[in-house]
Design a protein around this nucleic acid. Structure first.
Length: 620
RNA sequence: GGCUGUGUAGCUCAACUGGAUAGAGCACUUGACUACGAAUCAAGAGGUUUCAGGUUCGAAUCCUGACACGGUCACCA
């Protein structure tokens, strides 16, 4: 394909304007859109904007243009005009030729290499707890975006930064030391990240007990009397006082803080314990990533990167975009960018969170030479990333224009927000187990795969369950806060992953059948199939739009577009399947053509689903 | 309170970035398997796009102002 249809049509319309109305057609913006289902045609020219240059009524313009295009542009076979909209019908020959060349190519949709590298960050968990539903959305979004960018022709590096240090992991470590009694994941048979997470929870429990008890002591009562606001209940007061208690009165708090100090001082025993427990967590995370079907090209650890960024501060000071206060602390004044005054280094010379992010960005650029960097992080950090990007822009970093915060809405349950304190957090491993279990139940009601081995059946069930879960999450636009209903996530009918998988399975089944029958099919005949049915045109038209969609979805970092595309394509395949015979079609040419159509649709469904991290089985 | 995001069918979500009669799925009602696979298809019902103004040939989309619900306003991470 030399030029795309939209480009051909646009040029045609512009030529028509020049020829028919004597205006400079190339200066006119052409509004071209895909034709709505209920009308005949594939592309539509909106003529309202042309009334000025043509000095005619919309319907008349449409009529003029339609005739002109039908005569002069080979690809346009026919047209119709409805209320100022010019619907163009693309010729059967064009569609057929497209299908039999590009459409059935194995790598259809793969963009040409752009020679640019993109770093995509996602997941980035803390190491004190197992992954949960929020991480799942993050991971699916990040992974899908990475696949999309790769498909669009970018070189992609998938990374994450692991928050492996700080007070949180120290709490787990301390609790294990105090209450673990030497237990290990091996000795208990618990998945290692869950094992560590249990000690984090244990710490919080013990801390709460200690806190509760303290509240009734003389000291506790005195604190309330002294700091409680008038009319405030003791309960409300102590709820807000917990952090202060942790830092100033709590025995456990003091011990955890001491552990953090030991860690920072490089105390050997503390480091060893830290290594051991983080090691457990990583082992558990690996399992979860593998189950989700994701991997990374490089891992960054906060314990290494938290010291970075000092040289960035020096650079900023040198450039005059950062300033020093009297006490020696460093800040940047971002008020003219509608952001606040941001401190970057404390008076004592220690750095803060955003400083290491400056350093990490630079490190990644040095590692990969990326021109774009994508951060998959929940929208609660919008402000942080706006600040970070503004700082890097002012530092004139070469990758600054390509920074993007893939900000997504948090996941709610039907009962409201997930609260770890209330035990409503949905665990990632449990969730996967649950959807696979549900797929198994549904599968057992069917006999479609009963001839397969136990292992093969189980593999298919796994793919179906995960498809249900992943599709359910990824079909929602990233920006949108989503409500996750576990009941709906295991649905396998309608707008779901298994529905799409089923369409793929059908395209494979018909080929299998054709081979079983042993009939020699002459695929050269496919080019003799001249009159396309509406359902066939629809499918081919949709296949045709795939590369453009990949590009759009990649540039807007929106994998949900791909999910919706897969669903629509599957839907049209199902309808086609229902309305038309394939192996017993009217003519040998039709048989050959439709098999090729099935192949192209199957390939594209597989490619599309792969982009959103979903596998398609051969049978189900 | 400042900044910011969201508000569309009972529920979960779309709407090609200003275009045609606002579309899907779930749930509900009804029909189609001796067909290449019914995890399917077809039909029905379901809407004042939160509200009020404005911009224009044309608004769910852009502007103004309300209302509701999130998020965020650290020398925490």
């Amino acid at each position: 394909m030399e030029k795309t249809l939209p480009a051909i049509l646009e040029a045609g319309v512009q030529a028509a304007i020049t020829d028919l109305y004597g205006a400079d057609g190339t200066a006119v913006e052409i509004t071209l859109q895909t034709t709505r289902r209920e009308f005949e045609g594939e592309f539509t020219v909106v003529t309202f904007p042309l009334t000025r240059v043509a000095r005619k009524k919309p319907d008349e313009i449409a009529e003029d243009l339609g005739q002109y295009l039908k005569e002069k542009v080979a690809e346009v076979a026919d047209y119709n005009v409805i209320k100022g909209f010019l619907n163009l019908v693309i010729s059967d020959e064009y569609w057929r030729d497209f299908l039999l060349t590009d459409g059935i190519a194995d790598d259809y949709g793969q963009g040409a290499p752009k020679g640019e590298t993109v770093v995509v960050e996602f997941a980035s968990p803390n190491t004190n707890k197992p992954l949960h539903l929020g991480h799942v959305r993050n991971i699916l979004l990040g992974w899908s975006s990475a696949q999309l960018l790769a498909k669009a022709g970018y070189e992609v590096k998938k990374v994450q930064i692991i928050n492996d240090r700080g007070i949180a992991i120290c709490k787990s470590m301390l609790a294990w030391q105090l209450f673990g009694g030497g237990a290990t994941p091996e000795s208990t048979g618990i998945k290692p990240d869950h094992f560590v997470g249990e000690y984090y929870v244990r710490f919080e429990q013990k801390f709460q007990e200690e806190y509760k008890a303290w509240q009734t002591t003389v000291e506790g009562k005195k604190t309330f009397a002294l700091h409680g606001k008038p009319g405030q209940t003791t309960e409300a007061f102590f709820k807000g006082y917990s952090k202060k208690y942790f830092n100033e009165y709590s025995v456990l708090g003091a011990q955890a803080s001491e552990m953090l100090r030991q860690w920072e001082a490089g105390d050997e025993a503390t480091r060893a314990l830290w290594n051991k427990m983080n090691g457990w967590v990583y082992k558990g995370f690996e399992e979860t990533y593998a189950a989700l079907g994701v991997n990374f090209d490089k891992l960054y650890y906060e314990s290494n990167t938290y010291v970075l960024g000092k040289d960035m501060i020096d650079k900023g000071l040198e450039m005059g975009v950062f300033h020093t206060r009297e006490d020696g602390s460093v800040y940047a004044d971002l008020t003219d960018a509608k952001l606040s005054e941001k401190t970057l280094m404390r008076a004592d010379g220690t750095s803060i969170y955003i400083t290491q992010d400056l350093g990490t960005a630079r490190l990644r650029y040095d590692d990969f030479g990326a021109t774009r960097m994508l951060y998959t992080v929940a929208d609660e950090q919008n402000h942080h990333f706006a600040t970070l990007f503004e700082l890097l822009k002012r530092l004139d970093e070469p990758y600054a224009p390509g920074l993007y915060h893939l900000s997504y809405g948090m996941v709610d349950l039907p009962t409201g927000r997930m609260k770890s304190r209330e035990g409503t957090v949905v665990d990632a491993d449990d969730l996967m187990k649950e959807v696979i279990h549900e797929a198994r139940l549904v599968s057992q009601e069917r006999a479609a795969t009963s001839d397969l081995s136990e292992d093969d059946r189980e593999e298919i069930i796994r793919q179906i369950g995960l498809a249900a879960l992943k599709f359910h999450i990824i079909k929602v636009g990233p920006k949108k806060r989503m409500t996750f209903d576990p009941k709906e996530s295991v649905d396998m009918q309608g707008q779901t992953g298994p529905y799409v998988q089923n369409a793929y399975v059908r395209t494979r089944a018909v080929w299998r059948k054709a081979e079983e029958n042993g009939v020699a099919i002459d695929f050269a005949l496919a080019k003799d199939y001249t009159k396309l049915a509406p359902a066939e045109r629809e499918l081919i038209n949709q296949l045709y739009s795939f590369p453009e969609l990949i590009s759009t979805a990649a540039e807007s970092y929106d994998p949900s577009l791909i999910a919706m595309f897969c669903y629509e394509l599957a839907k049209n395949l199902h309808k086609f399947w229902h309305d038309h015979s394939i192996l017993s079609a009217e003519t040998p040419a039709a048989v050959a053509f439709r098999l090729q159509l099935c192949k192209a649709v199957g390939n594209t469904l597989q490619a599309g689903m792969r982009l959103i991290g979903i596998e398609v089985p051969e049978r189900m």
